[in-house]
């Protein structure tokens, strides 16, 4: 399965909020063959935004390489004292991440709205 990565355009609704939030939607399996592609596209976003929401709703499976990519993003964002929120993790994926320790690093939410609340921002998603 091909993976697609889409940065979702948003408007920040709260005046005075730093313009540093990115919402990224991932679609497809993330494994050894796709992780490097995802990383190449997501890391630059993480470099310019200190708050990142990764929408995982349409990611059915992640291998070890995929989880490592997530932690790389986390470390990038943390270096700027930012925060990463994962949204819509499939139950099995969440369990794998829990057992292998990756989950400990992330805030997880069911929806993008909840993710925004967790990051204390109000946004409007533009389509």
């Amino acid at each position: 399965m091909e993976i697609t990565i889409k940065k979702i355009p948003i408007t920040l609704l709260e005046p005075g909020t730093d313009d540093d939030l990115a919402i990224v939607e991932l679609v497809g399996n993330i494994d050894g063959s796709t992780a490097s592609k995802v990383q190449a596209q997501v890391l630059p976003i993480a470099e310019t935004n200190s708050r990142v929401i990764l929408d995982m709703t349409q990611v059915p499976y992640m291998s070890s390489a995929g989880l490592r990519m997530l932690l790389s993003v986390y470390r990038q964002v943390l270096a700027k004292e930012g925060q990463v929120v994962l949204v819509g993790l499939a139950e099995e994926l969440q369990d794998t991440m829990s057992v292998t320790g990756f989950l400990d690093f992330f805030t997880t939410c069911a929806t993008i709205d909840e993710g925004c609340t967790a990051l204390s921002v109000k946004v409007q998603v533009l389509s």
Partner: peptide, 20 residues
């Protein structure tokens, strides 16, 4: 011994246990 042995992630799972 790893719940994630089928995914080949026993190293991460065991290290996570030690850390915890």
């Amino acid at each position: 011994y790893a719940a994630t042995g089928k995914l080949g992630m026993q190293v991460d799972e065991f290290k996570t246990l030690v850390k915890e």
